[in-house]
Design a protein around this nucleic acid. Sequence first.
DNA 1: GACATCACG
DNA 2: GACGTACGTGATGTCC
Length: 930
Amino acid sequence: MAFGKGHHLHLIDGSAFIFRAYHALPPLTRKSDGLPIGAVSGFCNMLQRYIEGNTGADAPTHVAVIFDKGSHTFRNEMYDQYKANREAMPEDLRPQMPLTREATIAFNIACEEKEGYEADDIIATLSVQAREAGGRCTIISSDKDLMQLVGGGVEMFDAMKNNLIDREGVHAKFGVYPERVVDVQALAGDSVDNVPGAPGIGIKTAALLINEYGDLDALLERAGEIKQPKRRQTLIDNAEQIRLSRRLVQLDEKTPLDFTLDDLEVRDPDPEKLLSFLSQMEFRTLTKRIAETLKVEAPVIPEAAPTEGAAEIEAIPFDKASYTMVSDKETLQTWLDKIYARGYVAVDTETTGLNDMTADLVGISLCVEAGEACYIPLIHKANRGDDLFGSDDLAEGQMGFEEALRMLTPMLEDQSILKIGQNMKYDAKIFAQLNIGVTPFDDTMLMSYAMHAGLHGHGMDALSERYLNHTPIPIKPLLGSGKSAITFDKVPLEDAVPYAAEDADITLRLWQHFKPALHRAQTTRVYETLERPLVPVLMQMERHGVKVDRDTLSRMSNAFAQKMAALEAEIHELAGRPFNVGSPKQLGEILFDEMGLEGGKKGKTGAYATGVDVLEDLATEHAMPARVLDWRQLSKLKSTYTDALQTHINADTGRVHTSYSITGASTGRLSSTDPNLQNIPIRTEEGRRIREAFVAEEGRTLVALDYSQIELRLLAHIADLPSLKQAFADGLDIHAMTASEMFNVPLAEMTPDIRRQAKAINFGVIYGISGFGLARNLRIPRAEAQGFIDRYFERFPGIRTYMDDTKAFAKEHGYVQTLFGRKIHTPEIASKGPRAGFAARAAINAPIQGTAADVIRRAMIRMPDAIADLPAKMLLQVHDELLFEVDKGAEDDLISVARNIMENASDPVVKLDVKLTVDAGTGSNWAEAH
DNA sequence: GACATCACG
DNA sequence: GACGTACGTGATGTCC
């Protein structure tokens, strides 16, 4: 009998089921091979519960699960931004999607999808067909986009809240009945699907307008009559956009389908098929339960290896002999086939050096399963290079460089294949040089950092030792050291293969270990929002580099050398004999033994201390220490900056390319190396001039934006200090205000000295203040410093509480957290003696410094998209500052966009009680811009 | 490679 | 009651 009166169709929104299952369950994996399976498990459970709950008199006669297919639909043709801000599907969910289709079929339920259409369109088409045939239809979903379909025998059922949505239910949600829902949605827009709508109009206002004017067309036609000027204008200005929005939200009730309602008739499951699928997935409980329901015997699922990560991974021993070399395209193709079947692969590159801007790709290793890895050598030389003749010949047994990359590139760029790396920024930069974009990816180094910051380093060797109980093959013996060191392309293949392949093997095993651990440690969100997305951003900045003028530096070097020579002569004269001014040991002996100055203190190595503090004190008694300080400053500027920076100017680009380490600092700050561009001088006039060498390209300008007092602002929020918050809200001079509060001095009578003391205390608080430390910093008696601190605590009682609570938390948990959930471990807090003191202060500082680091990371991650339409590039980050280079004339546009991103970087995750403000400067060089 | 020193936030 | 103490980094030169 054809579908008609008396029949009842159920349409299940498959995607909704999957996402609910995915988010509701921990990241389960199939025991035998680690395949992620949590969403499939939840999906099957939901299907089974659905079946069990729909057996009564009102049971459906027809049923289907409807899925989305592909991400590109006819709506993207109308509007390319449709659903453009959707987050990418989590990697561990992607391989489960086809399995949910298999599950539906195993349950013997019709499973439908159609390329170019959303599931919602299929649901719309079927529900209309059911209604027109005189039957009933229940849509099992809570998606508001489907509410336009309700009425005339069509209802929705929200399986989550267990409630039925009829016409009245829709009215309660939208303020209009189903036939006008599309009009309201068109006006209100939808940020989730990126439907624009009318700016400033939400569901409430939209419903009001539609109810007043009847429908959307009437409203738009008579928009001029609207009394409120803002509403009137937005409707007039955005009429086209609103009509487009209506077309986007309007479901297609005429989707061409190659089946009919009759094909959806409820069928009993085939026990054999269903149980075979469930046991293949290794769902023990569910298999048993369904077997009982179906009154058949449950199949026996063999017990796989134990589930705990480490044990499972250790179960497969490392074996150099199992690694293979790929020398031809047939073999490479079998590896690609394996990778596509799996959906993920560990990748590692071998190169001719450690600098990813200058190193060349030498070979690639791959691993899809613990113990099963290969190395693809590409440009290994025939011998070690110590042979005078023929040393440029390539070693035998390598497939062509071009051919290998031609085969690998589609896989490396395939959205459905997850590439797993250890420090992916390095490998991705190597591939980027060859115009290959590696995406999507996971990074075991960043996973470790998200979980273990403060506990240990995150290099591969350390992680392998610690989590895999395996010492990797050392690289030293292969490359040698010193003058005789060779590059990896000179390493003989029989040595290179096991070394390189093992790195990929280790990386894969670490990933298998970390992936579930990341969830258990509740740091997945930190990893996915604060660590991983930073990689492409930093890659871009590093590859772009900053222009540094060699002539300026060179002139400065010469000037410094001259001044140093003069000072050196003077110092030798004052000392009575020549010595190495750069040697603290010799200097100490001269000052304290030969010249007999007082106050010499020997450190633990038996040498006199000759640091700035000591020499500054001595300067009051003798002329020499001051000269030494001057000499040291120049020596520092010359050796570390004006000389060294020149050597870092890249020959190809004429620019300096630093490398940022994401995992270097335990608090979440970045660090910068080769060269370090985060400690370019600024505090002294002579030093600041080095920034004049950091210049903009011809026709461009440097723009520096920095957060004003970000750590103190965050302290005010985190420790909940009302008077400090108020001071920031009022835009007061925060150090003067602190001084005024503490010393009872009206702001009008503030002296620079009182302000300076208050400033030192404010900073001291951020660092975990102590009487001793403050006394030393301010050069005042310890008792007086302690008095300041006591008064500070009285005036800002929240500080005490914050410090005590933070220490207590650290002691209990072994870590502290930032506002964004980043964990910083403080294991030494439990130790006895001075180490505990260090750890306590670090624990107090970490949430503040770490939250500031999170804030600027969030800004940096959003920045590339925000400035995509501007002729601007982000060049450098210096903890609370971002440096940009922009075409002349576009400075103001850039400042307004970038400042907006920076000031609102905490949104929407954290709502700060204190506003963040950003100062901006521009100039043809960094000294001017700051 | 350890240590002291000093550049930055 | 004594212990040593501001938090977080990286690069350089000396010396062993």
